[in-house]
Computed example of a mutant assay.
Amino acid sequence: MNASTLNKFLKDKSKVSLLKAEIDAEVSEYKKLMEKIGSSISIYFHEDESTFLNTYGLLNLINQTINGYLKDPELNYICDCLTLAENVEFENEKIKEIVFEIADQEIWGNYKSVDELKAITKILQK
């Protein structure tokens, strides 16, 4: 995934098809490896520009997942990319914590349910 593609999506949710097309093969491999215990997972995040994740952008990602435009593994993969990137800035610590929580399903237990994602959106809107 390219940071520039992610940034376009974060600013404008209509770019979801572009983002999905770019990460499809990566997420397929990611999902298979997540099912194997003890496997190392490759993350492909080309930082062709820096990324700033604010509340609007994170809400966009989560709402696209709640509405079925993104799948749970896609959301996890994107969040994993953001946790490992060097040129990512988070609007605040709350945004960063949520991204890390979504990314690390081994610690927090599988993918987030729709109800959990809705609860996160309420936290973000406070």
Rank of each mutant, 00 (worst) to 15 (best):
T5M: 05
K94C: 05
S39N: 13
L70H: 06
Y56A: 11
I95E: 10
E86Q: 14
D104P: 00
E29N: 07
V88M: 09
M1G: 06
S14D: 15
S28E: 12
L19W: 12
Y56N: 03
K13N: 12
A119S: 13
I43Q: 01
Y69L: 10
I123R: 11
S17N: 14
L59M: 14
N63W: 08
K11H: 15
Y69I: 01
L84C: 13
S28V: 09
L19H: 08
Y77R: 01
V27N: 08
A25Y: 12
N87A: 04
S39V: 06
V16G: 05
A119I: 07
S39P: 04
K126I: 03
L124N: 05
D115M: 05
D115I: 01
V16C: 03
Y44M: 11
I37F: 07
K118H: 01
I123K: 08
L6E: 14
Q64Y: 11
T83V: 09
L19P: 07
K94P: 00
E91Q: 15
N7A: 04
K122V: 07
K11N: 15
T121L: 04
W108I: 00
I66N: 06
K11V: 14
K118N: 11
D115K: 06
S113Q: 02
S113H: 03
L61C: 03
I120Y: 02
H46S: 06
N92K: 05
Y111M: 03
E91Y: 13
F90P: 03
V99E: 01
M1H: 10
S14M: 08
I98S: 02
T51V: 15
L124P: 04
S39R: 12
S39I: 02
N76E: 13
Y69C: 01
N92E: 11
Y30L: 03
N92W: 05
A21D: 15
L33C: 00
L53E: 02
N110W: 04
K126F: 05
T121P: 03
V99F: 02
I43V: 15
E101T: 11
L75V: 10
E22I: 07
I102H: 00
V16D: 05
Y44H: 15
K8L: 15
F100N: 02
T65R: 09
N67D: 15
N63E: 12
M1A: 04
M34H: 00
E91I: 09
I37W: 01
G57P: 12
D24H: 09
A3K: 11
